[in-house]
């Protein structure tokens, strides 16, 4: 125990840097995933069969294949074919972005479909273009429904980052293993990793909850940032509050 804590103290700098790498990969991967989720999710609703077909194929492919294999493909297989991605971290960000973007596309599509039909009709009656309907009316409402599932995906993405250590990146898991090698304390080293990942995941959750509260307050629901640290209840306002203004069938 004593040697473990001493070693932990000695490698604090490395561990700090490793946490930053893990957070960096998570955040960059999430940004790419978010962009792809919107592009693919919107294309998957296209009127044109070809566009829809292409989007669906991409979504199903990246959802249906293992992240682990995708990452190894980018890092080990592409160079064999003559394409070298400049850094291992970039490989990981691309793999995370594609994989979680595919999941996120379904979140975007589902949330858009959940906006009441009455809202589309209200926008048509004001003679908005298809793009204006989406930008001014539908997406600002659909966005709130996306935040909780996006939060799930973000946490899953964070928990996928230990894959980084398999492609030579000194992430949090890599440093945890270094700690274990240096001290021989297997249980403590992995306990340490569990705790740090949990703390990181909880920070992300709090940030996403804040985002959700702000988004809800903009729709005139909920009390903004108040009550953020309370345990979540079964959504008492629910989507039906939006339907009050949005109307039924």
């Amino acid at each position: 125990m004593g040697t473990f804590l001493t070693q932990l103290g000695d490698s604090a700098g490395n561990i700090g840097a490793a946490i930053l790498v893990t957070v960096e990969a998570t955040v960059l991967g999430a940004i790419l995933a978010l962009v792809l989720a919107f592009i693919l999710g919107l294309l998957a609703r296209s009127r044109f069969l070809v566009v829809r077909g292409i989007a669906r194929t991409i979504i199903e492919f990246f959802r249906g294949t293992s992240l682990y294999v995708q990452l190894f493909w980018l890092y080990f297989a592409l160079p064999v074919l003559g394409f070298q991605i400049s850094s291992a971290l970039l490989c990981a960000v691309i793999a995370f972005g594609l994989n979680f973007g595919a999941y996120g596309a379904e979140v975007v599509r589902g949330a858009i479909n959940a906006v009441p039909k009455a809202q589309w009709e209200g926008a048509v009656a004001l003679n908005m273009t298809g793009f204006q309907r989406m930008r001014l009316v539908i997406l600002p409402q659909a966005w709130i429904g996306m935040i909780p599932p996006f939060n799930n995906l973000l946490i899953q993405l964070l928990k996928s980052t230990p894959l980084l250590s398999l492609i030579t990146v000194a992430d949090l898991t890599f440093e945890g293993q270094q700690l274990r090698a240096a001290t021989g304390q297997t249980a403590l080293s992995y306990l340490f990793l569990l705790v740090v990942y949990f703390i990181l995941a909880y920070i992300f959750t709090l940030l996403m909850n804040a985002l959700e509260s702000v988004a809800k307050a903009r729709l005139g629901r909920g009390g903004g940032l108040r009550g953020l640290f309370r345990l979540r209840e079964a959504d008492p306002t629910g989507r039906s509050a939006g339907a009050g203004a949005g109307g039924g069938a």
Binding site: A118, Q119, E121, G122, A123, V124, A125, N127, T129, L136, V137, P140, Q141, R218, L219, G220, R221, A241, G242, G244, A245, G246, G247, G248
Partner: peptide, 19 residues
Amino acid sequence: RTVRKKIGMVFQQFNLFPN
């Protein structure tokens, strides 16, 4: 879009935009 601009509608369920 060119002909719809002549028409306005008020709905049973208002259909106001809550955002």
